[in-house]
Structures are given as structure tokens and as C-alpha cells.
Design a protein around this nucleic acid. Structure first.
Lengths: 228, 228, 228, 228
DNA sequence: AATGAATGAGTGTTCATTCAT
DNA sequence: TATGAATGAACACTCATTCAT
């Protein structure tokens, strides 16, 4: 084994044999397979045999990269979450137009880059398995949900400050604003898979934005917030 | 319960019967135990041993009432769902005041009778297991979700007809209106269990109703709906 | 229930109410059901639930009459075997004609009263379960097989003494003579149930008798028996 | 094997590997263990734990090779049956002497290579379990019984054509000829195991052949066959 | 680095048996 | 005598994990 390593090191600068390149690619393939299966069948319903098979490796190989099933799940979540937040934050920071449009852009951006993607399956997975893996849920909550909500909260404050939105409590309102996005993610991976449903994402999102904006621009509405 | 225990304690020193004939009570006890555990640990994570133990019977007894684990799950769902819909519909039919107040009453009614109850755990369960039990999800969708949405849709139409609400597309809007309620149910049984969260149900619901009503009463808002 | 019993007692001298007669009939009904099911499904494959159900009683009742499953099996065998041997022996004792005809009569008698009857299922059952219930097999061997072979042996000796049959070793020959009868019983309850087979009982028995008689009446055949 | 054991003994004081890679040998070992136990205890009475233990592996290993208990049984039957038929047919094809001797050779050949072997246990097993596994019985019937009977039928026709045997109906007679062989197989694995019996295989077979030949060479016997 | 044969604890399910009524 | 609810030991089968190669 020692000699083998030395030999391959010696060769690696000249040409890349297939297995060397795959060495780095393995985790990605494994995570992709795991993501698919975890989302499709849930944690318990996913057999590592199948993950390995779908990734084109043997079951033993899986254990070279991930200590056990739980670690694999954590890796799936971690690896897929990092880009999400970064994307969102960049999107928000770059924008400089009016707040209503920014809301629109954000919402449809999330649709394209998250909800309409395998990534939304992770939300579903984490919600489903939160009972068995609380730390994972906490991780996801802190790394993803909190940040997105912070983003939304910033948007609300920006709109209020610029006089575009009426004064609402940004902290509490954010939870409500967040709900339809989260539900859309869960819906697609639950009832969306097995029921004939009237919910059409585009129309749903249009209505969602419409509802929010009509509310936020309703300057003479007397909410409870102002009074307290 | 207290008196019962004392009474049986007084007698128990002589001999403890292995079991008591309680055919009528059994199913309810079993379903209660199953509901608790399914909600807490998910389908796969729930052992029938534990369900039986929590119900105070042996594992074999479980099979006298439910053919297998899946049937037990189905029974849990079915038995707990029937009253929900009835309650909701009665609540709506009885009301005759203004639509805004009706919305308030409905929302806080659901909170009290569903979301703030074990029943919301069923929603979580069904969403989580929808991949493994699509029929069950379909059943829940058709029996619960669709009916509640129909209720909400009726409310919207009522408000529009009475001139209380501006004209929105009732069919699409309903999906958005439904989202925060559904999310609250899921949230309580996922992140609500393991994360420090700013989400406080009462405030959340207040804001939710506020947001909706401010939108629906914003008569001079130019939505896309009216234009098409 | 109390009054019912008293009433029926009072009436019982005049006519037999159904349940009183059934009290004595129970074991017979149970044995009949058990015979059917044991034969059809084997010992392990027969559930006492089904035996009870087919006999029209509850499972608990079964245990009032038979201590356990094994005892039930033994009873099935014992109860059904008694008449068999008696029948056979009476049949043989009564006959006074020529030995060839006696053989014919015996063979076709067994066919009618044993092989072509549920009873042959018992043979199959005992052979099948001999590994698990050796005592039962021993019992059957001693009570049935040995006696029938004794009968046949007597027939052979009678034929030889009367000069109708050539001299053969009665003890050893009997085993061979017995084989086709036994196999017919087993065949009907095994391959006869599931295979398209050329074996037709009537023709089979005709050929069997034919073969034996042609051999036994072959006086100038030089067998090994005479020489040793 | 000897050297291997010694070598491993020398090393074993340090650590005993949990298992050794023996993929090629496993099926044979498992089938041998299964054959033994199925024959000894019947299908239901055989625990896969025991099969695995007797084969020196864990229960899980069994499932690497056979999908379930039924498949294991089928494999036991299939694997052991193939050589039987081939042997029989070769034996018959090679012979060129007189038919009586051929009969003798065949009968004692079967004794040595089948009846006096574990293989006869399979017959017993299949007869016993024919009710639960009809397809298996059918398979055995078509692959083994039918072929052996065809062999015997050929022998009869050969003898008749060569004038060595009197004219009998080969089709029906074969069933009778086959019976004593089959019964001997069953007997050995049933009553032969638990009863003091006069049946001694050698003498039994001698008498069997004797009976058949004396019949077949009884040229002036008036059977029913010739008359129809 | 990669394999895949082997493991064994764990769980759903069955069913003979018991016993309060 | 009869019931049938309750039991619990037993067993087939699964699958995450290990490790010799």
C-alpha cells in the first residue's frame, strides 16, 4: 500500500489515470445519489446499497468517505446548503431598485434556484427527519432559514424607510412572508407528487407577491401593529 | 384515573391478572399511543413494541386490531381526521357577521382545535411519509386540505360579493392563504421542537390575519388579476 | 342464559335441542375439521384458528377437548384408524373362496374403504410428519401397517398351502405387495393433487393384482427363494 | 484441508477472522446443510438459523445466496436432482444384455445411487411438502418421476419385443413397477427411522425383482390386458 | 482507493396457548 | 361448557456496518 501510493504520486504529474480523477469526484457522485434517494424515499427508506449502486461504487467505498448513514445525510445537507445562502445574499446586496421589484426578483429567484430544484427536497427531508436529527434541523434553521428571513426582514425595513411600504413589524411579518415559500417547497415534495392539485407554482407565486405588496402598500390600513 | 389506580392497587397484592377484557377501549388506546409515537419518531422510527408498551398491551394484541403497521398508520390518520373537517365546516356555516371577522374566527378556531393539538402532528406525519404512502397523502389531501380550502374560497367569495374584499382570484388566492396555516402546523413539529425561534403562534397568527385583511381591503390596489 | 339452560334441560327428555346433541358431537366435529386441514395443509400449515372455525367453535373450546396441537393430531390419527383395521380383518376372516379372488376382494376393498377416502390422507400425513412425531409413526406402523401386512401374509400362506400360489417367502414378499397400495395413498395426496399424471386408480389396481397373481401362479418359475 | 487447518491453528491464537471469502464454496455448503435439515425436520421445522449455523455462516449470509426460505428449498431440490436423471439414463442406454438382467441392474443401481443416498430424502421432502409447494412437486414429477418411468417403460417394451417378457400394457404396468422403488425411498425416511421393521432393503429388492420377473416371464398367464 | 462477502442486531409478523369471564 | 381477548416466544427477513483482500 505504501509503495502503491508513492508510485501513483510519482505518476500523477504526468497523466491522470481514470481512478485518480474519480478519487476527487467520488464524494460529489455519492452526495448526488444520496440526495436523490433521501429526497425520494426518506432517511429510513433509503438503503446505502442503493446509494452506492446509483453512484456506481460498492457499498464499502461509501464508508471510505462517510463514517455512517447519519454523516452521509449531514454531508448531503451541508454540501447543498452552502451555495443557497450565498446566492440569496448576493442577489439582495446587488439590487438597488424599488423594494417591490426587489421582492419580486427575490421570490422568483428563489423559485428558480431553490424551490424548482432538488434543493427544495432537502427542506422536505429536514422537516421530515427533524424528530430524528434535531441538530441537523437546528443547523438548517440557523444556516438557511434564519438568513433568508434576515434578508426578507432587511427588505421590509428598506421598503418602510423609503416610504414604499407601510409600517409593519418586520420581525413578526417575516415569518408570515416566509411561509408560502416554505410551503411551496414542501408541497412539491409531498402532495405535489401524488395528488391532482390546483396549485400551479407560477400563478401561486404571482398571487403571493400580489398579496404581500397589496398589503404593504396599503398605507391607510389600520393594523394592530401601529397601535401597540 | 387517580381513584382507579388506588382501587386496583388495593387488590393487586393478591394477583395481577395478565390482562383485562377491554375490547372497546383498546383501539382508542392503541391509536393514541400510535399517534404519539408516529408523530414523535416518524413511521420507520416507531417500533410496534413501543406502541404496544405505551398502550399497555403486548405486541400480539396490536395485531388483533390492526393487520399490520401500515394499517395502524392509516387508522391513526382516518380516526383523527373525521372530526376535524366536520368542526371546520360547522364553524363556517354558523357565522353570519362580516367576512373579516369570520376570517379571524376561522383562523383562531383552527389554531385552537387543530394546530395547537396533536392533530397537527398528523399533518407533519403525512407530509413526511407522503413518499412512502401516497394513497394516504391523497386521502388526507382530498378529505382535509381540499375541504378547508373550499371553506376559505367560500369566505373569499362571500367577502367579494358583499363588497368587503377587493376582487381577487379566489381559486389561486386560497393556496396562498392556506400556506401560513399549514406551515405553522409543520413548523411546530419540526423546527419548533428543536430550535430557538422567534415564531410565536399568537403573534404569527395576528400578523397573518392582518396581512391578509390589509390586502383584501386594499380596494384601489392594481393587481394583475383584474387586468387579465 | 341461565333460564335457557334450565328450559332445555327440562325439555331434553322429549326432544334433543341442537346444542345438547352438539356437546357430545363436538369432538367429532373438531376431529373432522382437523383431519381435513391437517391433510390439506400439513401439521405446521394448519392453524388451530382455522380448525376451530371450520368446526364452528371458538379456539378456546378446542383446548377443552385436546391439550394441545400435538394431542389433536394424535387424536385425529387414533380415531380414524380404529375402524380401518377392524374392517380389514373382518373382511379377511369372512372369506372362504379361492385365494386369488380373496386378494382381489381385499385390494378393491381397501381402495373403497381406505385409499379412496379421507383416511388415506392420514397415511400421507403420518409419513410427512414422521420426523417430528416418531411415536405417532410407530403407533400407526404397529396398529395399521403391521396388521394389514399380517393379513396379506396370511393370504399368501393360505394360497401356498392350498397349492394356489407357488412357494414364496411370505414375510419378505408382503413388503413388496404392500408397496403399491401405500404408494397409491401417498400419490393421491401429493402428485395426484398437482400433476397431470397417467395413473388412473382403477387401471392401476387391476394391473397390480394382475402382476401379483401372474407371479404367484407362475409355478415353474425358479426364484432365488427356493434355493437358499 | 488438513494443512490449511494446521496453518490457521498456528495463527489463531492472535485473532480469528470473522469470516473468510469463500464465495464459490458457500452455495454448496449451504445446500448441503439445508438438505440435511429439510430432510430431517421438514420445511416448517427447519430454521434458517440452524441451516446457517450448520453451514458455518451467519443467517445474513444465507440471504446473499438465496432470496428466501422457499428459494432455498427449490435450490436444494434442483441442484440435487439434475445428476440423478442423467445417471439413470446413461445406465439404461449403455446396457445391451437381456432385459431381465437390465432390470436387475437398474433396480440395484437406483438403490445405490439414489435410495441409499441423501437424495431419497428429497423424494420424501417433496411428497411431504407437495401441498405447500405444488410447483416444486410438479417440477420433480416432470423431471424425475416421468423420466424414470419412461426408462422403465422402455425396458418393458424392449423385453416384450425381444420375446423375453409376456405382453403387458407398458404404460399402466410402469406405475406398478415404480411403486416399490418409490415406497422404499419414503419408507427409509419415515417408518424406517422410528420403527422396528422387517423390511430389509436387500431382501426387499430381491423379492421385488423376483416378483416382477416371475410375472413378466409367465408367458401362459391369462391377464386382462391381452383380452381387451 | 476500492471491493463485496460476511455479519448480527433489530423488527414486523404469526400463532399456539392461557385464562378471566 | 364455551368464549375470545390477551399473551409472548419464535422466526423470517433486512440492512447498516465491518474488514480481509
Amino acid at each position: 500500500m505504501r509503495t502503491k501510493e508513492l508510485a501513483s504520486d510519482a505518476l500523477s504529474s504526468e497523466h491522470q489515470p481514470r481512478w485518480t480523477r474519480r478519487k476527487e469526484a467520488r464524494p460529489a457522485e455519492l452526495l448526488a445519489a444520496a440526495l436523490d434517494l433521501f429526497v425520494a424515499r426518506g432517511y429510513a427508506g433509503t438503503r446505502l446499497d442503493d446509494v452506492a449502486a446509483q453512484a456506481g461504487v460498492s457499498k464499502g467505498t461509501l464508508y471510505l468517505y462517510y463514517a455512517n448513514k447519519e454523516e452521509l445525510l449531514k454531508a448531503v445537507v451541508r454540501e447543498n446548503i452552502v451555495p443557497v445562502v450565498a446566492d440569496s445574499q448576493k442577489l439582495a446586496a446587488e439590487y438597488s431598485g424599488d423594494s417591490a421589484t426587489l421582492l419580486r426578483v427575490l421570490v422568483f429567484g428563489w423559485w428558480e434556484r431553490f424551490v424548482n430544484t432538488k434543493l427544495s427536497g432537502i427542506s422536505k427531508l429536514i422537516v421530515s427527519e427533524s424528530g430524528n436529527f434535531p441538530e441537523l434541523a437546528r443547523f438548517y434553521h440557523d444556516e438557511v432559514i434564519v438568513r433568508i428571513q434576515a434578508l426578507m426582514q432587511g427588505l421590509l425595513q428598506r421598503g418602510i424607510e423609503r416610504g414604499e411600504f407601510r409600517a409593519v413589524d418586520p420581525v413578526q411579518t417575516v415569518n408570515v412572508l416566509f411561509a408560502p415559500m416554505m410551503m411551496l417547497s414542501l408541497w412539491r415534495h409531498s402532495f405535489g407528487q401524488c395528488c391532482k392539485t390546483t396549485l400551479k407554482p407560477q400563478a401561486y407565486l404571482e398571487n403571493y407577491v400580489d398579496l404581500i405588496l397589496s398589503s404593504l402598500t396599503h398605507h391607510n390600513y389600520e393594523s394592530d401593529y401601529g397601535k401597540k
